[in-house]
Design a protein around this nucleic acid. Structure first.
Length: 465
RNA sequence: GGCGGGUUGCCCGAGAGGCCAAUGGGAUCUGACUGUAAAUCAGACGCGGAAUCGCUACGGGAGUUCGAAUCUCUCACCCGCCA
């Protein structure tokens, strides 16, 4: 039996935009006060008494405003654990935690949802543990909407991309410089699924579409993704075609398994399944992939939304998202996987993407890279040793309200855990707020407002103002 | 007083005649990071703007040798053990 943290949700206002955060700093610096932290800190573990049984609420999505000159839109996703106003950035907590930051802090900085990873949680602590805890949200004390990635990214990061830098912009390198030898990979793909060797203990594990769906159903996130093969842009066209065929076939199996599991668990909150569009940088492949997923049915069910995946480059990101969104139905949400750089977000929102997730804000923060309206900079640089201004003087986050660059610089250099926390809070807030501002622009002013926001923001961010 | 060990670049610490401007850590400086094998990784790190070049360097000084951080003598300081 599973319950929704209904009372908690209402109390904290999670899942309904970022009210908590906007209320966080009425006037300048000072301790952040929110209704969230005060109530949240009273509980250290799931408080079962607060849970109330609910009927299985439907998953839904509605477009609330559109840009005329592009595919950009604003909307509202409703899940059993609350709503998400889109466009929205969904921070990543791979192992059921945003590294170094509590759920209360994530709520306070305006996160509307969190994304975890099925493969990582399957390996540790095991999907059964999360299920026994009452699902991902209950396990990590996050009452709002949750997502899980399928493990498809690990097909790349532990497979062809193992130990390689697969970040965007590696297109000029030879294949063998970028794609790991088969013998050294921890993930090997075949048409039926993927054999992983655990990065934790070397043990062998088999992921198939059915396994991924089973794991994700145990984890119980509100939005789950079909198991796909994430490819690199280095692969040949021939490989991309074969891979896409595989991903499409897997999508169908995911849909069927998801329908079966959903029917078998009528008392559970409904989990929305997103199909993932691959096809690399090829227009025909991306459009065909999207079209196939849109038409796909299994067990009387279609996908509830769509993910857009793959290693995208800045140069082709807008085009790829545009091609895909031109084929996808207006009435269903689109999630762009793994993207959060400022210019990429503007491009993708304009092209029609609704939600985003990315590890960059948290990982970069831990490595000292901090976002500001003037661009990204490294606080660990020597020039910040005596800089007592906030990380970003215009930011409304907890960190910027009370701490200086010099302090965060010191903490990071001293490897004090608090440094990771403070820097991550700021970076996550910066990106969440950026995407929120895009939504506000679309909702309030339409094309002109959105474009003005974009042009001004990017000019300043990239130092061209 | 006797015997033994030691002194290496900002710090720790390898090196026992040429391949040594000197392994490796740390510190320092800089950069990267897009569905997290990531509190990680990469580069720089004696001076000369760079150099297959020059200079200065392995406690000080003097030697041996074609050639010394490495061998000898000596001085200084440090650390043991015995008195």
């Amino acid at each position: 039996m599973r319950y929704v943290h209904d009372a908690l949700m209402r109390r904290r206002g999670i899942g309904e935009g970022n009210r908590a955060c906007r209320a966080a700093r009425p006037n300048g610096p000072g301790p952040v006060k929110t209704g969230v932290s005060s109530s949240g800190l009273e509980r250290h573990r799931p408080d079962v008494a607060l849970f109330v049984p609910v009927e299985r609420p439907p998953f839904s999505f509605a477009v609330t405003a559109r840009l005329r000159g592009s595919g950009g839109r604003a909307g509202l996703i409703s899940t059993p654990h609350g709503a998400i106003r889109t466009p929205a950035f969904i921070p990543v907590g791979t192992a059921a935690a945003v590294k170094g930051v509590t759920p209360e802090q994530m709520a306070a900085l305006g996160a509307q949802g969190l994304l975890a990873n099925a493969y990582h949680l399957y390996l540790r602590p095991g999907a059964g543990v999360v299920q026994a805890a009452g699902g991902l949200g209950a396990f990590m004390n996050w009452p709002g909407p949750t997502f899980t990635d399928s493990g498809g990214f690990q097909v790349l990061s532990l497979g062809a991309g193992f130990k390689k830098v697969l970040a965007m912009g590696t297109a000029g390198l030879a294949d063998d410089e970028v794609i790991a030898k088969r013998s050294q990979r921890l993930a090997l793909v075949d048409d039926d699924g993927v054999t992983f060797r655990s990065h934790l203990d070397g043990s062998t594990h088999r992921f198939t579409p059915e396994v991924s769906m089973g794991v994700q159903h145990q984890l119980g996130a509100d939005i789950i993704f079909a198991f796909d093969e994430c490819t690199t842009l280095m692969n040949t066209r021939g490989y991309q075609e074969a891979s896409l065929d595989r991903t499409t076939a897997w999508a169908k199996r995911c849909l069927a398994e998801h329908a079966r599991l959903t029917a078998a668990e009528p008392s559970q909150p409904y989990q929305a399944l997103y199909g993932v569009v691959q096809g690399a940088q090829f227009e025909d492949l991306r459009k065909r992939a999207a079209s196939d997923l849109v038409q796909m049915r299994a067990g009387g069910q279609a996908f509830d939304g769509y993910g857009i995946g793959g290693a995208l480059e800045k140069e082709n990101l807008a085009a790829i998202v545009g091609w895909v969104c031109s084929v996808l139905p207006e009435a269903k949400p689109r999630h762009l996987l793994g993207i959060s750089e400022v210019d990429d977000l503007f491009a993708a929102v304009a092209a029609g993407a609704d939600t985003f997730d990315c590890v960059a804000p948290s990982r970069s923060a831990r490595h000292g890279a901090v976002y500001s309206p003037e661009g990204r900079y490294n606080v660990t640089r020597a020039i910040y040793r005596n800089d007592f201004t906030p990380l970003d003087p215009e930011c409304d986050c907890y960190t910027c309200a009370s701490y200086s660059r010099a302090y965060v610089h010191h903490l990071l250099r001293a490897r004090e855990l608090l440094g990771y926390t403070l820097a991550t809070i700021h970076n996550e807030r910066f990106i969440v707020r950026l995407v929120d501002s895009m939504r506000a622009a679309i909702e309030s002013g339409g094309d002109a407002t959105f474009e003005r926001l974009r042009d001004n923001f990017l000019a300043r961010y990239s130092g061209r103002s």
